[in-house]
């Protein structure tokens, strides 16, 4: 039994990390907005989805114009990432301005419902546009970085099987790490980051200290949404096919990751995301082996959420919540 688990371990770790990195960056968006407004921005999963669609649309346009052949794929991807994150960042700011700011002093529940409404709206707008252009709302982008790289895990120890990695895995992982490190630096080391932390701690007092609260909140939405949109592009590159409903399940899991890490805490969200991704992949690959076929791979989410419940029972603030003072 242990032998079997070990055999698949290298591949499970690789797949889990790729999925976990995506969860982690989407979780950042939830956690940032919660930290500053105490609002669960349920539309964030849909911003991620919109990013995936915008990115794929740009990539398709590029390859339609024949530009893909004339520049290195990585350059094209970076270009797409930048354009997409600016677009979704502005979208996030717009949503905040139109749907959340007028309700900032209303009860929390009202904004929550508005967020759910926005997410339905985004789903259907994207579906409508895609169907109009494509005739079908399931979109498949050009395949980039699909080269397979063999990892000779068996060379390290004979208990492991060899694993294989798509080259997009490295791109996703590296870009995800860059984004997270950059965000961490921005929040902790810059003036604007300080302002964000100040607003998160106490909005009124920060306002008295000449922090422009509206601007800071808009900036938070911009950064969170830009990261979400960029992750959408990475997701589309890694998995190839997207539809307007990918944001729902993924958003839910990313939100879980944010809670697991301690909502409002940036490093916690990163850790929670990676952890949920690894747990999910591990459970999907090994549950039937460990339980002798009683529990199938379809119980992977149950397994991941059971861990969440256990963590929250013993540490209701999440793994990193509150203990570390910094909050965004």
């Amino acid at each position: 039994m242990i032998e079997q688990v070990l055999q698949t371990l290298p591949q499970v770790l690789i797949d889990g990390l790729a999925l976990g990195a995506v969860y982690a960056i989407v979780a950042l968006g939830y956690t940032m907005v919660y930290g500053i407004l105490e609002l669960i921005n349920f539309a964030h999963g849909e911003i991620f989805m919109t990013g995936a669609f915008v990115g794929t649309a740009i990539l398709l346009t590029f390859s339609g114009l024949g530009w893909m052949a004339s520049m290195p794929a990585i350059l094209a991807l970076l270009l797409v990432l930048i354009v997409t994150s600016v677009a979704t960042g502005l979208l996030g700011m717009g949503i905040e301005r139109v749907a959340y700011r007028p309700l900032r002093n209303a009860p929390k529940l009202i904004t929550l419902i508005t967020a759910i409404g926005i997410s339905f709206l985004l789903q259907d707008i994207v579906r409508f546009i895609t169907e109009l252009k494509n005739g079908n709302y399931i979109l498949t982008g050009p395949s980039l970085f699909s080269k397979q790289i063999g990892v000779k895990a068996s060379a390290i120890s004979s208990v492991f099987n060899d694993a294989s990695v798509k080259s997009s895995f490295f791109i996703v992982l590296i870009l995800a790490v860059i984004m997270m490190v950059a965000l961490d630096f921005f929040v902790n080391k810059t003036k604007w980051g300080m302002a964000m932390r100040a607003v998160a701690q106490d909005r009124e007092t920060a306002a008295l200290m000449t922090v422009n609260v509206n601007k800071v909140i808009a900036l938070t939405f911009f950064i969170g949404s830009a990261l979400g949109g960029a992750t959408g592009v990475l997701f589309a590159v890694q998995y190839g096919t997207i539809d307007p409903y990918i944001g729902f399940i993924l958003g839910l899991k990313a939100f879980t990751a944010a809670v697991l890490g301690g909502i409002g805490n940036i490093r916690g969200a990163m850790f929670g995301g990676i952890m949920i991704g690894l747990l999910e992949m591990f459970a999907a690959a090994n549950l039937p082996v460990v339980s002798h076929g009683i529990l199938g791979a379809e119980y992977k989410d149950v397994f991941a959420f059971a861990i969440l419940i256990i963590v929250l029972i013993f540490k209701p603030e999440g793994l990193f919540g509150k203990v570390s003072v910094e909050k965004v």
């Binding site: 698949t8 990918i246 999910e280 992949m281 690959a285 379809e298």
Partner: peptide, 17 residues
């Protein structure tokens, strides 16, 4: 004999099996 969830995009777990 394994199940997957509709709407998900990553089936690597099952495929590892």
């Amino acid at each position: 004999f394994e199940g997957i969830t509709i709407g998900e995009k990553d089936f690597n777990g099952v495929l590892n099996q």
